[in-house]
C-alpha cells in the first residue's frame, strides 16, 4: 500500500515522517536494533549516564543508522542540570535535539512543569531544539511555546505505567490551542491508545516501556507503528460525528412495504 497520507511533520527545521518515536531504554543491547527496525521510527531517544571504562559499549553501535537521536535530560532536577546534560549530549556529536526532563517527584516521576519551563528558556537560549516533557497543562504549555519549545510532550499517564491516555481531555485542549506539535509521551501501554492520540490530532507519540515490557518487543514495536499510522490517517480522513443512533441502511423499502422510488 502506498503511504499517500504518510505526511511529514517538522521539528527544528527538519522533516520527519514516522509519527512513532521510540525510546531505547530497558532493552538488552543486542535486542535494540531489531526493535527499532520493526518500529521504524525516525527519532529514537537516548539517555546520558556515568559510565565505567571497563566493558564500555557504545549503544549507537547497536542502533540502525540514519535516525535522529533525541537525548533526554533524565536525572536533572533543576533547569541548570538539564542545561548541563544537554550540553554534554551535544558534545557527543548527535545534534541539538533535546527532550527536556526535569523531575523531582520520586514517587510518580511527574515532570516539574515550572522548572521545565525554566529549562526550556535556558536551552533555547543555548541553541537547542527543545522538546519539553511535561504534565499536561495548557497554561504552562503556552509559556513553553512562547519560550521557543519546538514541540510539547505531555504525558498520557505516569511514565512507565502502561495506563494509557488517561489525560486525554487535557491533551485535547493542548492540541486545539497550541501552534507547535503536541507529542504524547509516556504512559501509553497499547497500540490502540497511541492510535487514539493520533486520531485526536497529536503530531506523534513516544513509546518505550510498552514495547520493552511486551512479550515480543519487536512485534509490539511494529504494532505501535501500524496503530500510529492508522490514527494519523483517521485524523486526516476526519472522524464522523458522534450521535445516539443513526441507521446505516435505508429505512424505507422494507419487505412487503411500498417500494421506495429513490432506491
Amino acid at each position: 500500500m502506498t503511504p499517500v497520507t504518510w505526511d511529514p511533520f517538522f521539528l527544528g527545521g527538519r522533516q520527519f515522517h514516522s509519527r512513532l518515536i521510540l525510546g531505547s531504554g530497558k532493552y538488552p543491547l543486542p535486542q535494540i536494533r531489531e526493535v527499532v527496525e520493526a518500529g521504524s521510527p525516525d527519532i529514537v531517544t537516548l539517555a546520558l549516564r556515568r559510565v565505567n571504562a571497563l566493558g564500555q559499549a557504545n549503544i549507537l553501535d547497536y542502533l540502525p543508522e540514519g535516525k535522529t537521536w533525541l537525548p533526554n535530560t533524565s536525572g536533572a532536577q533543576t533547569a541548570q542540570e538539564a542545561l548541563t546534560l544537554a550540553r554534554l549530549a551535544r558534545e557527543l556529536g548527535c545534534g541539538d535535539f533535546i527532550k527536556i526532563e526535569v523531575i523531582v517527584d520520586a514517587k510518580y516521576l511527574l515532570p516539574d512543569n515550572e522548572r521545565t519551563l525554566e529549562a526550556v528558556k535556558l536551552l533555547v537560549a543555548d541553541g537547542f531544539v527543545a522538546l519539553p516533557y511535561m504534565t499536561p497543562d495548557l497554561v504552562i504549555a503556552r509559556k513553553m511555546e512562547q519560550a521557543g519549545a519546538a514541540a510539547i510532550m505531555p504525558l498520557g499517564a505516569p511514565i512507565g505505567s502502561n495506563k494509557g491516555l488517561t489525560t486525554r481531555e487535557l491533551i485535547r485542549l493542548m492540541i486545539a490551542e497550541l501552534k507547535v506539535p503536541v507529542i504524547v509521551d509516556a504512559g501509553l501501554g497499547r497500540p490502540s491508545q497511541a492510535c487514539e492520540a493520533l486520531e485526536m490530532g497529536a503530531c506523534a507519540v513516544m513509546v518505550n516501556t510498552a514495547v520493552a515490557t511486551a512479550e515480543n518487543p519487536p512485534a509490539m514495536a511494529r504494532a505501535f507503528a501500524l496503530a500510529v499510522r492508522a490514527g494519523r490517517e483517521a485524523y486526516l480522513a476526519g472522524l464522523g460525528p458522534v450521535s445516539e443512533a443513526t441507521a446505516s441502511s435505508p429505512l424505507t423499502g422494507f419487505l412487503k412495504s411500498e417500494p421506495d422510488p429513490t432506491l
Binding site: G23, S24, G25, K26, Y27, L29, I32, T45, L46, A47, L48, R49, R50, V51, A53, Q56, N58, I59, L60, W69, P71, N72, S74, L88, A89, L92, C94, I159, G160, A186, M206, N208, T209
Partner: peptide, 10 residues
C-alpha cells in the same frame, strides 16, 4: 571529573 556516555533511555 564526571564521565558520561549515551545509554538506552526514554
Amino acid at each position: 571529573l564526571e564521565v558520561v556516555a549515551f545509554v538506552g533511555g526514554g
